[in-house]
Design a protein around this nucleic acid. Structure first.
Length: 426
RNA sequence: GGAGAGUUGGCAGAGUGGUAAUGCAACGGACUCGAAAUCCGUCGAACCGGCUAAUACCGGCGCACGAGUUCGAAUCUCGUACUCUCCUCCA
């Protein structure tokens, strides 16, 4: 959530920033008008409340002295009615403001390409060498089905499209990948977490999925206690500290978790319909950081490094891009995607998204620390995939495929595969 | 799933309609070469508004959360969440 005071003090700046995220200037003008209205009403009610408090004191005194206070009580009855009316008006204005405010995206950082077009993302650097094949590389789903390690057809029968069964060496490869990821993060100082996979509405609000993106997730309407299947581990990880004041000495905090992620993929009909790229359920190892505001840009660099390191060790070529302002997630001030090379698609595909959410989530979720003066301040939160597991398996199958249809296991994963070095049809 | 008890400041803990005791901790000062002890004083989360150079000052709000009754609610009423105990169930 944005700070209304920042918008109030820098209206033109705020409009420019948000215009790059498809927010209309009139929306901000309306918001500011409501803000003036709100503060006027607050001033009025508080004046009346101060008066009521003062007279109530007098009434209390008189009662104690067994004096008659009927005049005062009559007068305050009237004041009480006025306060009630003003409070109602105030609540209405606040609700209106809140409706807008919780739906405004984060301000893009200064070094983000300001554009409504996702094609205006900026490539930062490339890592690794793209393999030259002396045969036509197959798509990962063809390889997986031929080897009998991925079964999309039966998944479609049992659950529907965008689901998969991993089998045998496929299942073990998936497990090898995420165990490798978690071990690497452990070595880098991340604390491993196993969080709930179902979360309540307050949590979905805290990380910014609700109220705007309710159609993208699976929610179980359990009477008056709805629970949502997490679309990313970011939700339970960030909300861990919701409504808390964290010890400043503990910062920065880095945590990681392997969880399934559940997404309805509403609106992406027809895209990536085959294979592991876009599933309703997929495993992902997520990294989350909480830090002081002055450290967050440096922590973002570390996050990108920690994600990229995994791809390097797996020998998968990738590049890092900075997303254009309107392509970054709702809560993000700046997002760097890592995109891995997929030979069959002849292009890079997103495998990690690393974002600095600055104080945007912290303000929603009320996550703070005490500064040197003992005053509570919002932390900055960051999240990044490290990495999407299914897409990593897809990248391994495609980049490490052999002409005979077998797949070589990347060296770093061999110990995680009980010594197996190649997946063959048998 | 059933029954009961509870939720007050950083902590402990009083307060059953008149507007949050007290203790510890913390902070400032005195004493001291310094510290401890002692004494004096200050301070009650967070948040919002006004006025500001200001973390100063004034006010609001504030006793788990939300609503209600009342001139006035920590206190009364209703709802919700969470914690603990017992029963039931269970991986």
């Amino acid at each position: 959530m944005l700070d209304i005071k920042v918008i109030r003090d820098n209206p033109e700046w705020a409009k420019t920033k948000l215009a790059a995220r498809n927010v209309k200037g009139e929306e901000i003008d309306d918001l500011l008008a409501e803000d003036v209205q709100r503060r006027t009403l607050i001033a009025k009610t508080e004046e009346l409340k101060a008066q009521r408090n003062k007279v109530s004191d007098e009434i209390s005194q008189k009662k104690r002295n067994k004096e008659n206070a009927d005049t005062e009580i009559q007068a305050m009855r009237e004041v009480g009615k006025q306060i009630g009316a003003l409070d109602k008006e105030l609540a209405a204005v606040q609700e209106k403001m809140n409706y807008t405010l919780v739906r405004l995206p984060n301000f893009p950082a200064d070094d983000v390409p300001m554009s409504l077009n996702e094609d205006d993302s900026r490539e930062e650097y490339k890592v690794g060498t793209i393999r030259q094949f002396d045969f036509t590389p197959k798509a990962h789903f063809e390889i997986g089905e031929a080897l009998g390690i991925l079964d999309f057809e039966r998944a479609a029968k049992v659950a529907g499209s965008r689901f998969v069964y991993y089998k045998g060496a496929g299942a073990r490869l998936e497990r090898a990948v995420y165990n490798f990821f978690l071990d690497e993060h452990y070595k880098e100082g991340y604390e491993e977490i196993i969080p709930p996979y179902l979360v309540n509405n307050d949590s979905m609000f805290g990380t910014g999925q609700f109220p705007k993106f309710g159609q993208d997730v699976y929610t179980i309407m359990n009477e008056e206690d709805p629970l949502t299947l997490i679309p990313t581990a970011e939700v339970p990880l960030v909300n861990y500290y919701r409504s808390e004041i964290i010890d400043a000495e503990k910062l920065p905090i880095s945590v990681t978790a392997l969880t399934p992620a559940f997404r309805s993929e509403a609106g992406s009909a027809g895209r990536d319909t085959r294979g592991l790229i876009r599933m309703h359920q997929f495993n992902k190892v997520e990294m989350v950081k909480f830090c002081k505001p002055e450290d967050s840009w440096n922590e973002l660099k570390k996050l990108i490094h920690d994600a990229g390191d995994l791809l390097e060790k797996l020998g998968l070529p990738y590049h890092v891009i900075t997303l254009a302002s309107n392509d970054a997630s709702f809560t993000s001030a700046k997002t760097n995607d890592l995109e891995v090379w997929l030979p069959a698609q002849d292009r890079y595909r997103e495998i990690s998204s690393c974002s600095n959410c600055t104080d945007f989530q912290a303000r929603r979720a009320q996550i703070r620390y005490r500064d040197e003066n003992g005053k509570p301040q919002y932390v900055h939160t960051l999240n990044g995939s490290g990495l999407a597991v299914g897409r990593t398996v897809a990248a391994i199958l495609e980049n490490y495929q052999n002409a005979d249809g077998s797949v070589t296991i990347p060296d770093v994963l061999v110990p995680y595969m009980a010594g197996q070095t190649v997946i063959t049809g048998e």
